[in-house]
Every structure is written in C-alpha cells, then in structure tokens.
Amino acid sequence: MAEPFLTRAAFAAILVALIAGSFASIKIASIRARMVTWWVLAAVLVAALAMGPPGVTVLFALISFLALREFLSLAPTRRADRPALLLAYAMVPVSYGVMAAGAYAVWLLVLPVYGFLLLPAILLLNGRTDQYLSAAGTIQWGLMATTFCIGHAALLVYVPADEAPAGGAGLLIFLLVVTALNDVFQFICGKLIGGPKITPTISPNKTWAGFLGGWALTGALILAIGPLYTGLGWGPVILLAVLLPPAGFVGDLTMSAIKRDMGVKDASNFLPGHGGVLDRVDSLAFTAPLTFHIFAYFASERF
C-alpha cells in the first residue's frame, strides 16, 4: 500500500535541503545561481507529480527533448541529416507515448531496435556516404542517452501502487534525490578534501576523495532510505548502494568527455548555475536504468 506519509517526508526533506542550501549560498556566492535553479526544478517536479503519471511523462518528455536538442546542437551534424534529425526528435514523443499507453514491451523495442533500424535507413536518403557511420552513431547515441535511459525514471511512476511502499512516485523521488545528492556529495567531498585527481584528462575537477567520499555518503543514504522507499530486501538495497554512486559518477564523466571532445564546458546555459539540461541529467541517464531494473527484477510483477 502506498503510504502518503513517506511521500510527505520526502518532500519535507527536500524542502529542508533546499533551505539549507539557500542559507549556505548566502556565504558561498558561487552556488547562488545553482540554488535558485534547484528551487525552480523542485517546484516543477512537485507540480508534475501532483498531476500523476501523465504529468511526470510530459515533464520527462520535455527534459528528454531539451537534452537531445543540446546534444544534437553540440555533436557534429551535416545539413543533409535534417530529415533524420527531425525523425530523432519525433521519436521522443513516440517513445513517451508508448510508455503512457502502458505498452512496456513495445517501449523497450521502440528506440533500441526500431529507432536503431529506421534512422540509418532515413540517413540513406541523402545519398551521402562520407561520415555516414558517425552520423548514424551520433544520433542513436543521443537518443539512447537522453530519451531511452532517462525514460526509465519516468517509467518508475507506472509501478503499481501496491508494489512499492510509497508508490511509483516515491520510487521516482528516491531515484532523483539519491542521484542529485550523489552529485552534491561528490562535489562537497572533492572540495573539502581535495587530493589527487581521478580523471585529469576528462574532468580535471574530480578527485579520488570526491569519488570515494560521494560513494560512501550516497551508499549510506541508500542503505538508510532505500528499504523505506523501494521496499526491497537488504540484498538488492546493498547492490543498489554499491552500484548507483559509481554509475552516477560515470554518467557525469561520459558527458564531460563528449563536451571536451566538442570543445565546450557546458552544454548550454539553460539552467543558470548548472549549465545545460544535459549537464544536469547526465548522471540520471546511468542511474535511472540501474535503479529501475534492480527494482523490476527483485520487486515488480508488472515490469
């Protein structure tokens, strides 16, 4: 049975974290814009959750579209690819529409199989073979990361209310809070402890201390609230506590590598203090499928 108490407790905790962050930002000017954006993001999320699965689906479709547009604006594209790019954008509402229709098995196939087959076919139409493979690979990579992987977060709200202690909404809040705090913990541990860099060529700001400290703190957080929100036993919760923090870390790094490859620091400045939508959801692209599949395997009849 879904317990409204858990959802309320989560909102209260988010509120406390936002207020604490805002007080901290009075002293630390560099995170001020970032905190304002966090408030806006939290408000948008609460509004979407209040509208139930349709609201969440529309919000994540919009997030995927914005992230995909940032990705395709950064990545090398050819003028002749316009029809394929248009198709890639069209796949976003198609994918989320299939999800909203409850056709999980179809949703699993739409992008990874049929999108994968259709896009190169459309790319053939322009008759250009130079950089054909990189065009097909680029567009498919963007769709998989921004739409299929991130889509797993929205999919959590379709978990039946009796399969999770705080329902699907509780699972989504759990995923978002844990993923966001993993980023925050890594950032704080890195800043406070410093020490040797972990990936000097990809993201020079990341340190071993940040990575390991973030892992320990997020792992502890998952052990503390994971059983409450997911209803999973200790085995799967420990698995999640071990796997999720490094997954978020790697998600962050893959996007850093792409941005570095393209010669930019941030994907855009759409979210003041954070960079682009892509910069905000990069770790979610890795943590969302992981969380969804661990939950689905151990606890869900529906998925």
Binding site: F65, R69, S73, Y89
Partner: peptide, 8 residues
C-alpha cells in the same frame, strides 16, 4: 527549407 529542425 520549410520545416524547422530544433537546434540551440
């Protein structure tokens, strides 16, 4: 061209 394609 007549159909806009989204870009930043």
């Amino acid at each position: 061209t007549r159909v806009p394609v989204p870009f930043m």
